[in-house]
Design a protein around this nucleic acid. Sequence first.
DNA 1: CCGAATTATACTCATTCGGAGCATATAAAA
DNA 2: TTTTATATGCTCCGAATGAGTATAATTCGG
Lengths: 348, 348
Amino acid sequence: MTHRKAQRTSAQAPDAPAAPLPAAPLPAAAPPAPDSARPGDLAERNVLVDLVAVVVAVSHDEPRVLTLDNGASLPAGPFGSDARSLQTGLRDWVERQTHHPLGYVEQLYTFADRDRTGADGQRVMSISYLALTREQAERRAQAEGTWLGWYACFPWEDWRDGQPAVVREILAPALMQWAAAAPSTVMRAQRRRRVATAFGLDGATWHDEMVLQRYELLHEARLTPESLRHVPEAERPAVVAPGHAMTGDHRRILATGVARLRGKIRYRPVVFELMPETFTLLDLQKAVEALAGRRTHKQNFRRLVEQQELVEETSEMSTTRVGRPARLFRFREEVLLERAIAGTKPAG
Amino acid sequence: MTHRKAQRTSAQAPDAPAAPLPAAPLPAAAPPAPDSARPGDLAERNVLVDLVAVVVAVSHDEPRVLTLDNGASLPAGPFGSDARSLQTGLRDWVERQTHHPLGYVEQLYTFADRDRTGADGQRVMSISYLALTREQAERRAQAEGTWLGWYACFPWEDWRDGQPAVVREILAPALMQWAAAAPSTVMRAQRRRRVATAFGLDGATWHDEMVLQRYELLHEARLTPESLRHVPEAERPAVVAPGHAMTGDHRRILATGVARLRGKIRYRPVVFELMPETFTLLDLQKAVEALAGRRTHKQNFRRLVEQQELVEETSEMSTTRVGRPARLFRFREEVLLERAIAGTKPAG
DNA sequence: CCGAATTATACTCATTCGGAGCATATAAAA
DNA sequence: TTTTATATGCTCCGAATGAGTATAATTCGG
């Protein structure tokens, strides 16, 4: 069978849909496993399961993620058999540890590659979650963990002031060199094309939601500290991409979360989970721009928000610093119901 | 804290993005788990992990899913510690069992609710995958499993001939009755709104990708056989939604896969994984219509496909049954590279 | 108190894109 | 030869989107 070449296309597109509901109201017995498919004994089949959370908040025009050990890793906890569901397990765990109430929570991805092993060499599987919250000043004191800016981890992702210098001066040359170092002509061309589309070079446009592709590309090109951990000093390349690295593959998980949020923000009103009770339209715009890492046209942004009826006026005005005072708005909770956006099960 | 009501918005939106890459080229050690967060001993933490596959093919204008035991369940297998990664584990497993080579594979969701228990009462966790393939006639003989039409499972999802009678005559009345049976006025209104938006009633438009919401709604309203398993005969409602039920929560997993594929088909050229080497534009349109469960404007469909340069002409023409013979086309593999669609890592 | 600076907010214009229809071409069947 | 069915090319319209212009309401620096 001479089939198409890309037969084994893998599944790393940056935008898969669907995330199902938690436990159904009624218990549904798990299906009996087919006998033919039970090789190995139980011990071999058992794995440790961790929950990892990408907890996001926005403050001072900067999206931040909650980290432990001074930014070394994401909050993670064991998945105990006592948890009712994954979601509640995660929610309880993170809230207990960080004292931050989580708003929106959604499953990201489950990682279980062979190299992910724990202390005793047992395989560790991580189920990652994206969680949105408001960074609350009064809670900051008791909260463990530190809020780390997204763009400290991914400096190349912030295009709010145009193409960052990192891209032009460091990453683009290094990636192109990596592309040129490929063994065959075909691979060189392929790599160049991948680099160009991912980083918006050669006239390609920048796609803000391709966060994961870009990180993986840097990883593959050995430009991240994470990818160099087991490479002997001698063989290391001269350049390393700037940006705060993390333990294990936590930065990859973070990239997954950032990508997901950037994609979602377009067609679902999730920004409001990150906003205070009332806000001006400029506040809202700044938050969206911070998350997307790019500027938007002011008037068009307002038109969009208003014609979609996402917000409603309050009688109050902002205590303006300078310029004409702006009206304070409030999110219209009704839209969650109207458009069946928050999932099938409403709160309560 | 009198915060917003929908504070605990859950994460069941029908369209989350992002699915990361498999194992990074270099091993990355897993982060040491924080000691403070290790309650329970190992035995308590261990869970069984299964892989469940939603394998999709299209034949005779009907999308089908691969099932075992005459449609009773989806192919599922244990996740052994020997598998290199989840993807390859799944791929090997399904290909060995069904003799069907998988094309595109992507992770769907990880289920681990408390009620999911195995034979010995241990908790079972399922990582579900969506896989696309071509149903190959010559392999059908040796392949185990049967191809079950989507719409046998979800009759209400096929709108190719307009609103199905099931919706109007059975589901809509039953759901509205369920809504009316809610304890409070607020809940009644909420339920009505959810039903209307999910099923396109009361002037709301039908959204083909809300497959999961609809299934969950039926489940919650106790209209599915799955939701009635542990309900005593006496308490069962009079009506049950028609449609082929499955073991455990396999139909929920299938709904997740259908939703994902319907969403994805819009902006990623994944249909071609389901098409033969060459095809007419009508073939392609029929496949898309079958998956989406709704008709499309012929001329506009062609315009879209051609202006996006997804296909290229072949010299051959279809041996037409009746009418003017159509040109055979072929998928332009290049688009996968050009748009970085197939993920970061190209085949090989 | 005045003008400059700054921000808010209301309109307008052009382009693109998606839905829907009309017209014509090419085949088999009646 | 007419009918029927499909393929294929083209036009029209309205909604959504990108980008610019104009005016209003403040603070701030003299």
